[in-house]
Simulated scan of single mutants.
Amino acid sequence: MALHVTERIASGELAPDTPLPAERRLACEYGVSLGSARHATYLLHSRGFVVTIRSKGTYIARDAQQKAEQRLQTA
């Protein structure tokens, strides 16, 4: 799931400074448990693709598209 979201960021489907869909929505969209969606969000955060703003939500990082493209090229 984290890989697919990374691909969506690299393609521009999930644009910088836009909210990442809520974890519950991601879980439904991908047909996975809420725990799996949370783990994917954690991975995206640890790789610098998303940032969390307290009381606001999780957003695609400004430089996420470039980082995602680079990560996919090296994978």
Rank of each mutant, 00 (worst) to 15 (best):
T74N: 14
I53S: 01
P19T: 03
A68F: 07
G48Q: 14
Q66Y: 12
V51P: 00
S55N: 08
S11Y: 02
R38H: 12
A22K: 09
D17H: 04
L44N: 01
H4E: 10
K67C: 11
G31A: 12
M1D: 09
E69R: 14
E23Q: 11
R25M: 01
A10C: 04
H45N: 15
P21D: 03
L3Q: 09
Q70N: 07
V5K: 00
L3A: 10
D17E: 04
E23C: 11
L26C: 03
A75E: 11
Q70E: 13
L43N: 12
Y42M: 14
A27R: 00
T52W: 03
L44R: 04
S33D: 09
L43M: 14
A64C: 08
A15T: 03
Y30S: 05
A68Q: 07
V32D: 03
Q66W: 08
R71N: 10
G57N: 11
Q70A: 10
A64P: 05
S55G: 00
R62L: 15
E29V: 02
H45C: 09
A22L: 07
G57R: 00
D63P: 02
D63M: 06
I9S: 00
L72Q: 09
R54S: 05
A64E: 07
T58I: 06
G31H: 09
A10F: 01
A2Q: 10
L14W: 07
S55C: 05
F49L: 15
S36E: 10
A40N: 15
A64H: 10
A68L: 07
Q73P: 01
G31I: 08
H45E: 14
A37L: 14
R24Q: 15
Q70T: 06
Y42K: 11
A64W: 08
P16M: 02
V51S: 02
I53R: 12
D17N: 05
E7Q: 09
S33I: 06
A64R: 03
T74D: 15
L20F: 04
L3T: 13
L14I: 03
E23K: 09
H39A: 12
G57H: 12
A75M: 08
G57I: 07
V50A: 11
C28F: 10
A61L: 08
